[in-house]
Design a protein around this nucleic acid. Structure first.
Length: 877
RNA sequence: GGGCGAGUAGCUCAGUUGGCGAGAGCGUCUGCCUUACAAGCAGAAGGUCACCCGUUCAAGUCGGGUUUCGCCCA
């Protein structure tokens, strides 16, 4: 341990310390320990690919909380796991196979799923490696996967339990359908983008007259499935037509004209064509008015046999053909350019096709109610507070959750149908099962185990529902399923409910709200007491980072260049509390410089104080007392910030203290005025406080300095140590040095030139300076100091509270000095007038807090004295 | 159209319940390789706290309005 290079090299130490932590089992908690628990559940990364900068930020925050909690005496558990990420993973693997010329249908379900498992193993390894490189204190011994055999059992149990409680039903509904993935998507998996399109005005002849009614639509091809025209009942233009019939062009069907308040008379022509099977709005309208439903599309968004000659055309080709026909018929009134919001599949960006189909749903209203309550009464606290509004808004307007997906990768729905006596096409259970009344369909069984025989007819031809469950249906039970639920395990008892969930606000509905509901429903407890939302990482121009834009740097590249600690620290420094992060690589460089500074401070202490004690000094100097007192305020602030999850503020305070207080002042002072123990003791305290942010370098320094514990992670968080020495004189001295340095700069003096000074001050402070003149001389660059003497030549004057100091300058520019002092007098006079006005105000005297009044009075007196001093100084010039 | 957030130094942002001379980092400028650190040290310049009105002894901070930008929802 006698090597201590003057440049910090992260690459040479990081891997070693991670192995050390694992070997010492520092990340694996002991369920038998008596310490209070602190549990954090990682927002499970998807196995779709590598981690991004967003993950880096998210996980760094959790690591900071975990390490801080461990240092403050908690038994910590950071639960590791990954998400099978149904649709996302399936799409990625499908695309990969397509590039090799293989279609998933050619492989078949089982082989394709095997293919995904292979992919999963590969990427899980990559992800693990990345998390290790970042230094995260994850408990690898408890690692989970949402599609593991064990975890899957829990997911299936939840489905069956909810079904038995009447909270799961199969129903017909208009859903978001991706014609490429051939699957239902939840509302949250749909992204909307505004795109240029056209608005087509189509004339529908009114039967029994020569007139037309014109409707405007962005999707003319859906007219083949129209079953009504709808207008607003208050719309004067159409009032007489309500109850009439029109002839649907092309299809030559007659359809009714109805009215409803939902129709916006100002949009298009004010008349709406109603296509119940292919538009969510029209679907609701049709249910209300009991209209006919005509499905005109196949699952892949080609038209079906209900469309005559358009059969098998895809939707866009059909649109072109229909427009041509309408033109020929003279039914197309006009076409306008129009920007329309287009719904797309979040994963493959194909335009969504609304579609009526049979899907499985969870009834949400009853689950939401207690979940709203626990946030309101702060059993679950949300940081920052403003996200509560969003949570409440969604929860109060919650809709049933469509949980079936037409995918191959996922938990297969545990519903079995008898091929003899059950027709699943008719399996509509939402009506019969309302109000918790359970009337299972004939020949259908919902069960955790595959049945051998049909419960109704005894046939052994039972087959399982082809669909799988939404990914979020497995992750909403994450906080307790990972701890052993439904078994009452030691882990569950010890670590559940968890303490803090850290996540991005974009999954507040998808995940956070649902976890709260599941926790309450299945464990009777909230899953966590705190939810900390952190911002999104954007690039320098404010663009969201994404793979497709290619603007997200690979954290691994950054680690290779700057080190993991630099990445972690730099990121924390630029992460605001309530705004998105604008990432710039410069900030990582700031992190690197910070690490290097810390490294060198440790190096200095290693060189000069290696053999000191690591305990507080038994005989502190006044400077020791001063730095300990400064450190006390730091501890106080940081503890406060931790309580509010203000990690950015902590990073800033630590930066400022380590660099600008400890290094710039204290370490410089003790080069001149020697001290024992304090530097080493404080270094230890500082690296303990920095450890949650920059674990590698602090562990390295800890060992280089031979501190006593096996790992810095086993240390205790610093506590405030009362200071018994009056340190006011150190503060004045510091101020004096700053002012003298300022003068040096202003007069462009050679830093090597030693100056002479005359100081007039109190007896106490001159006694202090008498003993401490070396510090003043060293740090301000003085040679002689005269006390209680008046300057007899032009000088540069420094007037601060309780000290008048004159710097003797051989070739002083008198005019420059006069100007400087006059400017200062003007500023002071203005300030003095302001304060004077306030001090004399009756309301101020009556109302202001005593502490404020005291401070203002002091300021007033200081300003007056300073002005007086400067006036005298000008006279002497 | 509805909601949320933001506007403070050239840039990115801090600024607790109103109360010290509005701060930091980066950038710019000046001078320094001063024995831990040039990935450094010592300094400087730079602000009508978006705009208007109000509450108050006192407003960057609270209230109302205007405006620009960003995001979410329909």
């Amino acid at each position: 341990m006698d090597e201590f290079p003057n440049k910090y090299d992260p690459q040479s130490i990081e891997d070693h310390w991670y192995e050390f932590w694992l070997k010492e089992k520092l990340f694996t908690p002991d369920p038998r320990s008596k310490k209070p628990p602190y549990t954090v559940m990682i927002p499970l990364p998807n196995v779709t690919g590598r981690l991004t900068l967003g993950h880096t930020l998210n996980n760094s925050i959790q690591d900071i909380l975990i390490r801080y909690s461990k240092l403050t005496g908690h038994e910590t558990l950071w639960m590791m796991g990954m998400d099978h990420a149904g649709i996302a993973t399936q799409v990625v693997v499908e695309e990969k196979l397509l590039k090799e010329g293989i279609k998933k249908e050619d492989l078949g379900r089982d082989k394709f799923v095997q293919e995904i498992w292979r992919w999963k193993e590969e990427y899980a390894t990559t992800i693990r490696k990345q998390l290790e490189k970042m230094g995260f204190a994850l408990d690898w011994s408890r690692e989970q996967f949402t599609l593991s055999e064990d975890y899957s059992k829990k997911v299936i149990k939840v489905f069956v339990d909810l079904y038995n409680k009447g909270l799961v039903y199969r129903g017909e509904y208009i859903i978001n359908w991706c014609p490429r993935c051939l699957s239902a998507l939840s509302d949250e998996q749909v992204e909307t983008e505004e795109e240029p399109g056209k608005l087509y005005y189509i004339k529908y002849p009114i039967i029994g007259t020569e007139n037309f009614i014109t409707v405007a639509t962005t999707r003319p091809e859906t007219m083949l499935g129209d079953t009504a025209i709808c207008v607003n009942p208050k719309d004067q233009r159409y009032k007489k037509l309500i109850g009439g019939t029109v002839l649907l062009p092309i299809m030559k069907r007659s359809i009714p004209i109805i009215c409803d308040d939902y129709v916006d008379p100002d949009f298009g022509t004010g008349a709406l064509k109603v296509t119940p099977s292919h538009d969510p709005f029209d679907f609701t309208l049709a249910k209300k008015h009991d209209l006919e439903f005509i499905n005109i599309m196949n699952p892949d968004a080609t038209l079906n046999e209900n469309t005559k000659e358009y059969n098998k055309l895809n939707r866009y080709a059909a649109r072109t053909k229909i427009i041509a026909t309408l033109k020929k018929e003279g039914s197309l009134e006009k076409v306008e350019d129009y920007r329309l919001p287009l719904a797309k599949c979040e994963r493959c960006h194909t335009a969504i096709e609304p579609r009526i189909s049979k899907q499985w749903f969870v009834r949400m209203k009853a689950l939401a109610k207690p979940a709203i309550e626990v946030v309101k009464n702060e059993t679950v606290k949300i940081y920052p507070k403003r996200w509560i509004n969003l949570y409440n808004h969604w929860m109060e307007n919650i809709r049933d959750w469509c949980i079936s997906r037409q995918l191959w990768w996922g938990h297969r729905i545990p519903v079995y149908y008898c091929s003899k006596c059950c027709d699943p096409k008719n399996a509509e259970t939402n009506k019969s099962r309302k109000n918790g009344e359970i009337k299972p369909l004939k020949g259908m069984l919902v069960s955790t185990k595959r049945p051998k025989k049909c419960p109704d007819c005894g046939s052994d031809a039972m087959y399982q529902d082809k669909d799988v469950l939404d990914t979020w249906f497995s992750s909403w039970i994450w906080p307790f399923a990972t701890l052993g639920w439904p078994n009452k395990t030691k882990d569950l008892k010890r670590f559940y409910p968890t303490q803090t969930l850290v996540t991005g606000w974009e999954i507040i509905y998808l995940w956070v709200a649902r976890m709260i509901m599941a926790g309450l429903e299945f464990t009777g407890q909230v899953p966590f007491s705190n939810v900390v939302f952190h911002p999104l990482v954007r690039d320098e121009k404010g663009k969201k980072m994404s793979k497709s834009l290619g603007n997200s740097p690979d954290p691994m590249d950054l680690i290779a260049e700057y080190g993991a600690d630099a990445l972690r620290y730099g990121l924390q420094l630029i992460t605001p509390k309530e705004q998105d992060v604008l990432y710039s690589e410069k900030s990582i460089d700031v992190g690197r410089k910070f690490c290097n500074k810390l490294w060198n401070a440790a190096r200095l202490i290693w060189m000069n104080h290696k053999d000191d004690n690591e305990t507080p000094p038994s005989q502190p100097t006044i400077y020791d007392a001063w730095i300990i007192s400064e450190f006390n305020s730091l501890i106080e602030n940081i503890n406060k910030h931790f309580a509010n999850f203000e990690l950015n503020a902590i990073a800033r305070e630590l930066y400022d203290f380590m660099w600008h207080t400890f290094c710039d002042w204290y370490l410089e002072i003790i080069k001149i005025c020697p001290s024992k123990d304090t530097a080493k003791y404080l270094l230890k305290q500082i690296i303990i406080m920095l450890h949650p942010y920059i674990p590698f370098i602090t562990e390295e320094i800890y060992h280089k300095l031979n501190f006593s514990k096996k790992s810095i992670l086993l240390e205790d968080w610093p506590k405030i140590k009362a200071v018994k020495i009056d340190i006011a004189n150190v503060r004045t001295l510091k101020r004096l040095i700053e002012e003298i340095r300022n003068i040096r700069g202003l007069f462009n003096l050679d830093p090597k030139e030693k100056l002479s000074a005359i100081i007039n001050t109190s007896e106490d402070f001159s006694n202090f300076l008498g003993k401490n003149h070396m510090v003043l001389q060293g740090l301000a660059g003085l040679k002689d100091i005269d006390y209680a003497k008046k300057p007899d030549q032009p000088v540069a004057s420094i007037i601060i509270p309780a000290v008048d100091c004159y710097i003797i300058l051989a070739n002083i520019d008198i005019e420059q000095e006069r100007k400087r002092l006059s400017t200062e007098i003007t500023a002071l006079s203005k300030k003095i007038d302001e304060i004077k006005y306030r001090l004399n105000n009756q309301n101020y005297i009556r109302k202001a807090a005593p502490l404020v009044k005291q401070r203002e009075q002091k300021r007033f007196e200081d300003f007056l004295k300073k002005k007086e001093g400067i006036v005298k100084a000008i006279e002497k010039l």
